[in-house]
Each structure stands twice: as C-alpha cells, then as structure tokens.
C-alpha cells in the first residue's frame, strides 16, 4: 500500500507539540475545576470536535503527497484543531480572571485556520480539474473508487457494466448506437510462465497505457478480467469500431516493450473483436462480445496453422 506518512512527520510533530504546549501553559497558569463544575455535554461536544479535526488531518496526510495544497490543508486544519483543543481544555481548567491570553488562544486560530483551509480547498479544486484531464478515457462523468482495477490504472468490469447501462439509457432517448471493442492478449499465459508473473503484470500496465493512447478523447477503456480489456465507444458504428480495433492491433504489434529484468524486447500481440449495441443489458452485450472474441481467436489460430 502506497502511504505518504513518512513525508509528513514534521507536520504531525509540530501539531502535536502545539497541542502539548497549550496543555502545559494551562496547567502552569491555572487550577483544576471542581468536579461539579464539569459540563458533560460541552466536554463531549468540544472533545469530539477536536478529535474529528485530528482525524481529518491524519486522513489528509495519509493520502496526499507533500506539496503546496497538502501544506495549506494541514495548516488550516491544524489551526482549527488547536482552537477546538484549547476550548476543550477550558472545560477542565480554571484560569485567573486577570489572564487574557487563554481567550486569544481559543479564538484567533479558528478564523486563521478556516482562511487557510479555504485557500487550500480552492487550490485542491484546481488540482482536481488537472487530474480529471489526466483521467479522461479511464472514466466518464462518474467516479467510484470501489470500481478501480487493482493492477492497471483503469476501471474494472463493474464500472464498465454500469457505463453500458447508461449508454443503453442514452440509446433509448436518442437512438444512437454505441460499439465495444474487446481486446485479448495472445499467449499471455506463456509470457507469465517464461518471464514471470511480475513481468506479466508490468506488460498489462504498459499495454493498458498504450491502448489508452490509441483511443479517442471520449472513449472509455476498462480492464474486464485478466489480460482482457474492453473499450466503450459512444456514438460509434461498426465500421469505425473495426477500424479502431485494427489500429489497436497494429499499435500493440509495433510496440517494443522492454522487459525489466534484462531489458530485452518482448513481442506482444492482441486479438480484438467488436460488437455494436443498442437496447441490451450489460450482461447480454458482454456475452455477445465474449463469443465474438472466441470466434476471432479461432480465426487467428486457423490463419496461423
């Protein structure tokens, strides 16, 4: 699992140090309130809020690489957390009337924190627009991280099925058919046995990138299973789909993949099949696609023999 903890030790340490400093200053300056002055509801509310803020900080630090946006978000949430934390301590401690800094420590960090958080969120929004641009051809208008494939930077079969259902709805409204290309690698099992499964994984990652580059802006590529990929081509007829499929086959044939262990070139090839779809369920479409692929594989074998 990729984790960014180790880049953020300093940030986390400074937040914890600040919290401790606040606690120490209260302990030095004030005295503990008597038990009957504790207000349970306030303690729970403020303590819980402080804990939530700290959990947000942890989630952000765990999931984001270091950078400007991360620093802003952490600093903002850090201030919010500190303010809530001081509020929480206030419930237990009685400070002399003459002191005013406790009030300052409670109230000032909150607006500063919210300001920093807002700036951070604005830049995060800009960053997300950039990432969306990079994610094109891998997702369409809808994101569900549970449907990400675990090996390649593509979405999985579940996401594809969902998209096919959406296209079917669109077909019922506009009568525009869509096409699918299924791509299966030839002799991938042999490659796994000869070069090892780790090399096979890398080949799948490389091929998925290559296929993406050979598709149009509005097409969607998903990994169906194993060494099998499916491209969803909205608003596309059979002829165009076949042309695209042939282009994919050519692209993989001319792809000079270098193995990681010895850097030798591995020759790859794929078999592609297409089918056009309209008002059918995702299962029916995929069923037809699988039989088209089986037919195409047999044709390839016959040509080779």
């Amino acid at each position: 699992m990729l984790s960014y903890w180790k880049f953020h030790r300093l940030k986390l340490l400074s937040i914890i140090t600040c919290a401790h400093a606040g606690l120490l200053s209260y302990l030095l300056a004030g005295a503990l309130k008597p038990l009957d002055e504790f207000v349970i509801l306030d303690i729970l509310g403020e303590g819980g809020s402080a804990m939530m803020a700290f959990i947000w900080i942890c989630l952000i630090l765990k999931s984001r690489p270091a950078g400007r946006v991360t620093t802003l978000l952490t600093a903002g949430l850090g201030c919010v957390f500190f303010s809530l934390w001081m509020d929480f301590l206030d419930e237990f401690m009685q400070l002399p009337e003459a002191l005013h800094w406790d009030h300052w420590l409670e109230s000032t960090p909150m607006p500063i924190g919210l300001l920093l958080l807002t700036i951070g969120l604005y830049h995060w929004h800009r960053e997300q627009l950039g990432l969306n641009q990079q994610m094109r051809k891998r997702e369409r208008l809808f994101r569900e991280h549970l449907h990400f494939d675990t090996l390649t930077p593509l979405s999985s079969a579940d996401y594809l099925k969902r998209q096919i259902e959406l296209e079917r709805k669109r077909y019922l409204e506009t009568q525009q058919t869509f096409s699918l290309i299924v791509v299966d690698m030839n002799d991938f099992a042999v490659l796994n046995r000869v070069h090892g499964h780790a090399e096979g994984d890398r080949v799948l990652q490389a091929v998925s990138q290559l296929l993406i580059m050979n598709l149009r802006q509005h097409d969607l590529l998903c990994r169906l299973a194993g060494d099998r990929f499916v491209a969803l081509l909205p608003n596309t007829g059979t002829f165009l789909a076949q042309t695209l499929a042939q282009e994919l086959e050519r692209a993989v044939r001319h792809f000079a993949y270098k193995s990681q262990s010895h850097g030798e070139t591995l020759t790859l090839s794929i078999t592609a099949a297409v089918c056009i779809a309209g008002d059918e369920s995702a299962e029916q479409v995929l069923e037809r696609l699988q039989s088209a692929l089986a037919q195409a594989k047999q044709d390839t074998l016959r040509r080779a023999a």
Binding site: A157, D184, L224, A225, R228, Q290
Partner: peptide
C-alpha cells in the same frame, strides 16, 4: 457476478 473472470481465465 464476476462471470468475466471465468471467461477470461477458463473459457466460455
């Protein structure tokens, strides 16, 4: 629900 895995790894 993941019939496609069977098809890709075992056949039809």
């Amino acid at each position: 629900s993941y019939l496609e895995q069977y098809q890709a790894h075992l056949g039809n």
